[in-house]
Simulated scan of single mutants.
Amino acid sequence: MTAIVAFVMACVGAGLGFRCLVRALDSRGATAYRWLLTAAVAIGSGIWTMHLIAILGFGVDGTPVRFDIPLTLLSLLVAVVVVTAGVFAVGRDRSRTRGVVLGGILVGIGIAGMHIVGMFAAEIHGTLSYDPVPMVVSVVIAVGVATLALMVAFLTTSFRGTAFAALLMGFAATAAEYTGFIGLQLDVTPGTSVLPGASAEEFIFPFIVVFGSFLFLSSAFVALSPIRHGGVAAATTPVAAQGRGSN
C-alpha cells in the first residue's frame, strides 16, 4: 500500500511541475524563470514525498529504524537542487534534444542521489551498505524514464500528455526507490540503546502539510494562468531563445 501511495505522490508533484513547465515555455523573461522554478520545486518535493512515504514501510527485523535529521533534510535539498538544474536545462537550452537529454540525466541523478542520501540517514542497531548492482540499475531506471517523461512533457501542452509524462516520472522515482531498497545490505547487531534521529512518521506529517499547501497554491496559480499561444510549437521553443527573440 505504501508503494502505491508513494507512486501517486510522485505523480502529483510531477503533474503540477509539468504544467508549470508548459507555462514557462509559453512565457518570457522573469515570468518564465519563475514558472521553471515552481516546476522544479513541485517535481523535486513530489519525489522526496514519495521517498518519505516509501520509508514508512521500511522495517528491519531485530531493530527499530530512525533517520538522521540533517541527512534526511539534505536528501530533500539534493532532490530539489538537482531537479532544478534539470528543469532549467530543458527550459533554457536552445537545442531541444540536448536540453531534454541533459535534463533527464540531471533529474535521474537527483532521484538516485536523493534515495542514497536518504537511506544513509537510516539509523539501526547494526550497519547498512549497498550492493552496487541494484544501485546501478536504479540509476539507469531513473535517468532513462525521467528523460522519456521530460520528452513527453516538452513536446505537448495537452492535459493528456502532461498526465502521461507525470505517470512516467512517478514510475521513474518509485521504481528507482524500490530497486534501491533491493540493494540494501543490513547487518543487524541487536541492542537496547536509544537510536538518534526521528522516525519516518515524525517527518511525514509536517512535510505533508507544507507540500499540500504548496500544491494547493501552485495549482490555483496554474489554473488562473491559461496558456496564451497553445500548441506544440509554442511549447518546443526554449525559454532562452524566446527571450532573445523578443529583443
Rank of each mutant, 00 (worst) to 15 (best):
I69W: 11
A112I: 01
A10N: 08
F205K: 04
R94N: 10
G103A: 04
V139A: 14
F207S: 13
S129L: 07
L168N: 07
P238I: 08
V140K: 00
R28H: 15
S95T: 13
R94A: 14
V5R: 01
P238Q: 05
I111Q: 02
S218I: 13
F154I: 05
D131A: 14
V60M: 02
A173G: 12
A122Q: 09
A42T: 12
G144W: 04
F88Q: 08
V22Y: 01
G110N: 08
S27V: 13
V80K: 05
V117H: 02
A3F: 09
I109H: 00
G29A: 11
G197H: 12
I69L: 15
Q185M: 14
V82T: 15
T192R: 13
R228G: 13
A233W: 04
A223M: 10
G110V: 06
Y33A: 09
S219G: 15
T147V: 05
S45N: 04
L25D: 04
A223D: 13
M9S: 10
R98A: 14
G99S: 07
V239T: 14
L21P: 07
T237W: 02
A146G: 05
L217D: 04
V5Q: 06
V65K: 01
G212R: 09
M114L: 06
L184Q: 12
A121H: 11
G230Q: 11
T38A: 14
M169L: 13
V210P: 01
A166R: 06
G91R: 02
E202P: 03
V80T: 12
A54C: 06
W48C: 10
V210A: 13
G13Y: 12
A39L: 08
S138M: 05
S138E: 09
S213D: 04
I53R: 00
R94Q: 10
H115M: 04
L167M: 15
